[in-house]
Simulated scan of single mutants.
Amino acid sequence: MRILVVEDEPKLADLLQTYLQAAGYEARCTGDGLAVMPLIEDWPPDLVLLDLMLPGRDGLELCRDIRARTAIPVIMVTARTEEIDRLLGLELGADDYICKPYSPREVVARVKAVLRRSAADPAPAQAREVGGLDIDEGAWSARLDGVALDLTPVEFRLLVLLAGQPGRIFSRDQVLDGLYDDRRVVTDRAVDSHVKNLRRKLAAVRPDEELIRSVYGVGYRLELGGA
């Protein structure tokens, strides 16, 4: 599987490439933010390790662009540890994030975990319709009242989870179990952030309805007419 390492520190990029190749991956590196999207088009990777601070284009802008065009998993890498940066990376569609300094072995473990989730996601190629919501897991697409929803991979998994049992209350722990194999870096605030973003995208289609309800102290449930 192909891993694109976007890192502008040459020694660190070479170290990550060495560890990834030793783990059986094909890895390429670039430290130029402007080169990332052309490289993804010419050499489509299975995962992108994306540094936050880059020359040309920063990692957050690139993550937004990658998510708008593809479903390639993205792991954000940053030395800026402020929580807002972490949440912003997740809101833009990152599947995980790693803070510097880190162990290259930890990076490889995270890559394996995200790729394992990514490989498992398309397996149940099911289509369902409930209350005006159409979800096609095989095609990774969702529509509400016929309007396509532009969802990140994490938001899509969240919608699939909630729509599997409309009306059921899912706790944060159950949401985490449904979205992530490993919750080492995922906080309750990150879950709230994903729910907020999904709720906003649903509200763009049905502004007069609150489809995802927060049950104080318990969790979340999806409410659809006719469900």
Results as ranks from 00 to 15, higher is better:
Asp134Met: 14
Ala227Ile: 04
Arg183Met: 03
Leu47Asp: 03
Glu129Tyr: 10
Arg69Ser: 06
Gly24Pro: 12
Val130Leu: 13
Asn197Gln: 14
Ala125Tyr: 05
Leu179Phe: 01
Val186His: 14
His194Met: 09
Val215Met: 07
Ile135Ser: 04
Glu129Thr: 15
Leu149Ala: 06
Pro45Cys: 01
Tyr216Ser: 14
Leu60Cys: 06
Leu198Trp: 05
Leu149Arg: 08
Gly24Met: 09
Asp65Ile: 08
Leu202Arg: 07
Val5Pro: 14
Ala13His: 11
Arg28Gly: 07
Arg116Ala: 04
Trp140Tyr: 13
Ala190Lys: 08
Leu159Phe: 06
Leu49Ala: 01
Ala120Gly: 11
Gln17Phe: 03
Asp8Trp: 10
Gln17Lys: 15
Thr70Ser: 15
Arg69Trp: 04
Tyr102Asp: 06
Ser193Asn: 03
Pro38Gln: 04
Asp95Ala: 15
Val147Ile: 13
Cys63Tyr: 11
Tyr216Ala: 15
Asp58Val: 11
Thr187Lys: 04
Ala35Ser: 14
Gln17Cys: 13
Tyr180Met: 00
Glu61Cys: 07
Leu49Cys: 03
Asp8Pro: 15
Phe156Gly: 00
Arg64Asn: 00
Arg221Cys: 15
Leu211Phe: 02
Arg105Val: 09
Val154Ser: 13
Gly89Ala: 06
Gly93His: 11
Ala79Asn: 11
Ala79Leu: 05
Ala204Ser: 15
Gly164Met: 02
Gly178Trp: 04
Gly131Pro: 12
Leu158Lys: 08
Glu61Asp: 13
Gly178Glu: 01
Leu222Tyr: 09
